[in-house]
């Protein structure tokens, strides 16, 4: 009953959304080159299903690769900032400044730097756009660890590595996963940005672009929906990981 509810409610919400969308297009009498309606989409998927499969795969693996890099380097940066106040003071303004740069401006820069390396550029962008929340959350998590937590092990002569592994790391996991949810969405946006902006791109973004150049509006909307679905899948994959590794942080509900 509980699980049924958990599935039924979102499904119902999506159905209502689709119905409203259809109604809106129908009521305004918009032709499909202004705004496609949901009923136009199945045809687009049926015609281009293989392109959708290939594109989704390319978008997905490059996003996940970028995200994996972000997790690795973000955690590393966070650790450095968490353990050393000097590093924190030095790196923080740099990171904030970097994060404030609109990432779209980096696409041409990267394209010039690494000409023709489309996969590399895409993964790099996904990484660049998504490591910031991870670095900050790990850094803050470590630097705000209550001294008593450290002292239980430090008073036994445990090494810094041991304290990190047994206390600091698990303790920051909930914050880490909070940040990872944001980062997953950001990495996805980064991948799409490169796919859409760079000529001769790949992935769903490139499919969107070809829909645009061929004035195939239903195709463009179909890509948008596919992106949304992929984004949801990615997000809930992170949620599932969170349940496994930081499930203890969920308090029993009363």
């Amino acid at each position: 009953m509980q699980t049924l509810k958990k599935i039924a409610i979102p499904v119902l919400a999506i159905s209502v959304f689709v119905a409203l969308w259809e109604l809106l297009v129908w009521a305004n009498g918009w032709p499909n080159y202004v705004m496609a309606s949901p009923s136009d989409l199945p045809e687009a998927y049926a015609r281009f299903w293989n392109l959708f499969l290939i594109g989704s795969w390319q978008t997905l693996w490059r996003t996940v690769a970028g995200l994996a890099l972000a997790v690795f380097f973000g955690t590393l940066l966070g650790m450095i900032m968490g353990f050393s106040k000097i590093a924190r003071d030095a790196l923080y303004p740099l990171l904030v400044g970097f994060n404030a740069v609109p990432k779209a401006t980096l696409v041409p820069v990267l394209a010039l730097l690494f000409i023709g390396q489309h996969n590399f550029n895409t993964v790099l962008m996904a990484f660049l756009i998504s490591f910031f929340p991870i670095a900050v959350s790990v850094g803050i998590g470590l630097s705000t660890l209550e001294p008593e937590y450290r002292d239980i092990l430090r008073s036994l002569g445990a090494s810094r590595i041991t304290i990190f592994r047994k206390i600091a790391l698990p303790k920051t996991l909930p914050e880490f996963f909070g940040a990872l949810k944001v980062s997953a969405t950001l990495a996805f946006i980064g991948t799409n940005l490169v796919e859409i902006i760079s000529p001769h791109g790949r992935g769903l973004g490139a499919l969107f672009l070809s829909g645009q150049t061929n004035s195939n509006y239903p195709l463009m909307f179909a890509v948008l929906i596919a992106l949304a679905v992929l984004g949801i899948v990615l997000y809930y994959a992170v949620v599932a990981l969170e349940r496994i590794f930081a499930g203890w942080a969920e308090r029993p509900q009363h």
């Binding site: 937590y149 239980i152 008073s155 002569g157 303790k171 930081a246 942080a249």
Partner: peptide
């Protein structure tokens, strides 16, 4: 420096929730 022959308890019981 710290030594293994010491035990500590604080006002906050600092249990590791995981």
């Amino acid at each position: 420096s710290p030594r293994k022959t010491v035990g500590m308890a604080f006002q906050n019981p600092v249990m590791l929730e995981w």
